[in-house]
Design a protein around this nucleic acid. Structure first.
Length: 287
DNA sequence: CCCACGACCTGTGGGC
DNA sequence: TGCCCACAGGTCGTGG
């Protein structure tokens, strides 16, 4: 799924055609994604103006002129395709993603400017919600969520406090959205490698100086990934169909057996499966 | 509290 | 070429 950099890339791709636009037509082509769509979903959206397109962790958040807020999560395979309207594409940056399968075109949004935004999600792990008021300060999921990793509330001391007394593997806790928002399997592996911390290290035993390094590594890898337009794995593409290219800059993810990229390190990238999820790391330089 | 695992759902890639 | 299995970015719930 899209982790934070991919969701941010999608947000930036959708913002020009959604923010400030009025939804002239909304079509739900099935009653549910991961969960049932909100009651009268299409009717409540039709005619509303989208005031902004924000992001919180891996969620897209769209406050509406009706006083409600549209909340969207892309799950593992959710993506938007934009056609028509005032879609801007950077010259040379456009690579057509694999043709989207119409069977998985679950939602269609049409703006008053004529942009057609289609939500595809083959696995349907994505979901949408529509709630009253300012979700950023009322939606329970957001209230429980940890700080934005690119914001100024995320730093070594935050991790020290969040990890205090906890013996779970640091990798597990970094995936916990209530500790820090937006990280997923890929960027956790990449950040731990950059910080030279073993994924299995008991979180509560890591010294502050190493947690400072970890926080910096998280910011560094997310910044670089956003700069690259996110990562394109399998069928993921940004809102205009352009492919991100950060996957070519992964240092460990998907690189089992390759030499460790840390300068001077003679180790090899290993892959281990814990709780059904792959962890990629170098046992030589990550301690 | 911790942890492993299964469930949700579909597609794809690799091995044979 | 065809088949089958392992595996995939996330989250949630259960049971030990």
């Amino acid at each position: 799924m899209p982790e934070l950099p991919e969701v941010e890339t999608v947000r930036r791709g959708l913002e020009p055609c959604l923010a400030g636009a009025r939804l002239a037509r909304v079509e739900a082509r099935r009653p549910d994604l991961r969960f049932p769509l909100p009651h009268k979903f299409a009717a409540r959206l039709t005619g509303a103006r989208i005031e902004r397109l924000d992001r919180r962790g891996k969620y897209l958040v769209a406050p509406l002129s009706t006083g409600e807020t549209l909340i969207m999560h892309l799950g593992m395979t959710g993506r938007f395709q934009v056609e028509g309207g005032e879609v801007r594409r950077r010259p040379g940056a456009f690579v057509q993603a694999a043709a989207a399968d119409a069977r998985h075109a679950h939602l269609v949004f049409e703006t008053d400017a004529g942009a057609l935004i289609t939500y595809f999600d083959p696995r349907r792990f994505g979901f949408m919600d529509l709630v009253s008021g300012d979700a950023q300060v009322t939606y329970p999921t957001f209230l429980a969520m940890g700080p934005e990793p690119l914001g100024n509330q995320f730093h070594g001391p935050h991790l020290l406090e969040a990890f205090e007394g906890r013996r779970q593997a640091v990798k597990t806790l970094l995936l916990d959205q209530t500790i820090v928002a937006g990280l997923g399997n890929i960027y956790v592996c990449e950040a731990l490698h950059r910080a030279r911390i073993a994924p299995s290290a008991p979180a509560g035993h890591i010294a502050l100086i190493r947690l400072e390094r970890l926080a910096s590594a998280v910011r560094g890898v997310l910044d670089a990934a956003i700069e690259a337009g996110g990562s394109s794995l399998r069928d993921y593409a940004d809102a205009s169909g352009a492919m991100g290219y950060f996957q070519h800059e992964f240092r460990v993810y998907g690189r089992e057996g390759e030499g460790c990229p840390t300068p001077g390190c003679k180790g090899r990238v290993r892959r281990e499966v814990h709780s059904g999820r792959s962890t990629f790391f170098c046992a030589t330089c990550q301690r």
